[in-house]
Design a protein around this nucleic acid. Structure first.
Lengths: 117, 117
DNA sequence: TAGAGTGTGTAGTATATAGTATACAGTCCA
DNA sequence: TGGACTGTATACTATATACTACACACTCTA
């Protein structure tokens, strides 16, 4: 049971139904890893790849890199920069998010997106 | 110039003014690392320590572990679990936070904290 | 029915991470 | 003025990370 691997395999298989260029081997070739490795990643046999590999993967599959990085349990390096600049603030946000029920987070996201900040 | 190291040294030196038990060597001994290593961390000679070491450090100095982890550019493993459960949602929040000015984030944090979610 | 393409199993590896071990020079103060 | 303490420099290291290389069995189709 691997969140990242499952997501990856489903996304790739969905694309593969339309275009054969989304076979495991061809994707692996395009993003520059061995097919055996990508296979292991998809089956959760090994952990999620490095940040740069996740990003190349997201680009090839047309997925949102931030979502894929989140699934991989990583924090993108540009986000790390944001955090580093205001760690206290970020820690506060995190603290709130931890205890918040899903609907609250959803509401928060919507408010943030739609509000005039 | 190391955000984590500077914060650490300042926090420790401040405590040291009151109690000599906050010398570099004694802190190192209590949290279970070599003094030479802690010295390098404080001066930014090496990167921030591992998550568990950061947490022991925060506990010994009476600092907020989430703040220190944020300064270390890390995401605590329990937060990673939260993210893993709803990566899309989190990616959305992150996306917003990236572009938000400081005052907006502050306001957001306050609203979240004080609001009845 | 051979050849191209498919996914996967096994074994090994380069690099980064997160430190250790020991030695050294300076300070404090009894 | 010598012992206990301070921080730091140098050299080395165990473990984890993020893969590679290659071989194998299967399927599809021309």
């Amino acid at each position: 049971m691997s969140a990242f691997g499952d997501f990856l395999r489903e996304a790739r298989e969905a694309l593969r139904k339309q275009e054969p260029r989304y076979s495991l081997r061809q994707v692996a070739a395009r993003i520059g890893v061995q097919p055996s490795y990508l296979s292991k990643v998809e089956r959760g046999d090994v952990g999620p790849p490095s940040e740069s590999t996740v990003i190349r993967l997201a680009a090839d599959l047309g997925e949102d890199p931030d979502v894929m990085l989140a699934l991989a349990g990583k924090v993108s390096s540009d986000l790390q920069e944001v955090i580093r600049k205001r760690p206290r603030l970020f820690a506060d946000v995190i603290l709130q998010l931890k205890d918040m029920p899903d609907r609250a987070v959803l509401r928060l996201v919507r408010e943030v997106r739609d509000g005039d900040w």
